[in-house]
């Protein structure tokens, strides 16, 4: 976390109340523990975003009633909405906290800013969640180009501008998880490591549980991205097989929330429609080739 700009020790309530922001945070001390709310007063400054609000809270570490508390844990990285780290639920809406500008938030909801962790991933602490399942899904769909190796073999196949313009938007997916949090079919899967269970055994049990759950819009879209690549498409059957299995494309209820919340405006529903056609064709082909 980087240092706040202004002096945050001036947190005393009272005279400067008007310039204070009320920030309510849903906290949780660890996995499986009861969540609880805490309210913070943060001095308002120009051009603040939720990241700078959390930075001030980290430096103050004091609630509105003067109680000393541990800083709120959260995840952030690039602060310019390309890394996907800082997803959380802000005033009820899942989004990146770096682009959540305070002036805008206050305009829409003047009383307070409410921060909650993402709802579909296990909470590690406070606003920090475990999105391992999201990355596991990328492995499930074999989201890569299966090149022979990394020696110099000259350039890849020539590609049209049209193909690039189709693939580039899909390739901008930063694995933030907004689409999953907003999806009615994507349900939380939270397991606890048992006493005496090794890390490896726990990871394997988690992976098995994840494989049964919905794979999610982001991974379906990545499958379509690689199926549209001249070499990536050699794995298309395997991807289609994965998308046809438990937790695959058939789980999608077509709520279209995913595309509405995607901060990168990735055409996720178009990918899902393409995946629907592609898996149907694949199943037909499989049927006739039996």
């Amino acid at each position: 976390m980087i240092a706040p700009e202004s002096n945050p020790t001036s947190s005393a309530a009272g005279a400067r109340q008007a310039q204070m922001l009320k920030v309510r945070v849903l906290r949780q001390d660890g996995p499986g523990q009861e969540p609880y709310w805490q309210l913070f007063d943060v001095p308002r400054e120009p051009d603040m975003n939720v990241i700078s609000v959390l930075q001030r809270i980290a430096a103050i570490s004091e609630t509105v009633d003067g109680k000393k508390v541990a800083p709120v844990a959260w995840d952030c990285g690039c602060l310019e909405e390309v890394c996907g780290s800082c997803t959380m639920v802000i005033n009820g809406k899942v989004r990146q906290s770096c682009t959540a500008l305070v002036d805008k938030l206050v305009e829409d909801q003047p009383d307070e800013i409410v921060l909650e962790p993402m709802r579909k991933f296990p909470v590690i602490r406070d606003l920090l969640v475990d999105r391992g399942r999201l990355f596991h899904a990328l492995e499930r769909v074999k989201g890569w180009v299966p090149v022979d190796g990394y020696y110099d073999m000259g350039p890849g196949e020539r590609q049209s501008r049209q193909q690039q313009e189709q693939n580039y938007p899909l390739s901008q997916c930063m694995s933030c998880g907004c689409c999953l949090d907003a999806c009615p079919q994507y349900l939380k899967i939270e397991l606890e490591q048992e006493d005496g269970e090794s890390d490896e055994a726990f990871a394997a049990r988690q992976a098995a549980a994840y494989d049964k759950g919905f794979i999610g819009a982001h991974a379906i879209s990545q499958a379509m991205l690689f199926n549209n690549h001249p070499v990536g498409k050699t794995l298309a059957d395997q991807r289609n097989e994965e998308l046809s299995s438990a937790g695959g494309i058939q789980v999608c209820g077509n709520a279209q929330n995913c595309v509405a919340v995607c901060p990168k405006e990735i055409p996720l529903t178009r990918s899902i429609a393409r995946a629907g056609r592609s898996t149907t064709l694949y199943q037909l082909k499989k049927f006739f080739e039996r």
Binding site: W144, V145, V147, M153, P155, G156, Q159, S160, R161, Q163, Q164, N167, Y168, S171, F226, H229, V231, G232
Partner: peptide, 9 residues
């Protein structure tokens, strides 16, 4: 390019 980076064309 071979690894699939969508370079502008």
């Amino acid at each position: 390019d071979r690894l699939g980076v969508p370079f502008n064309r």
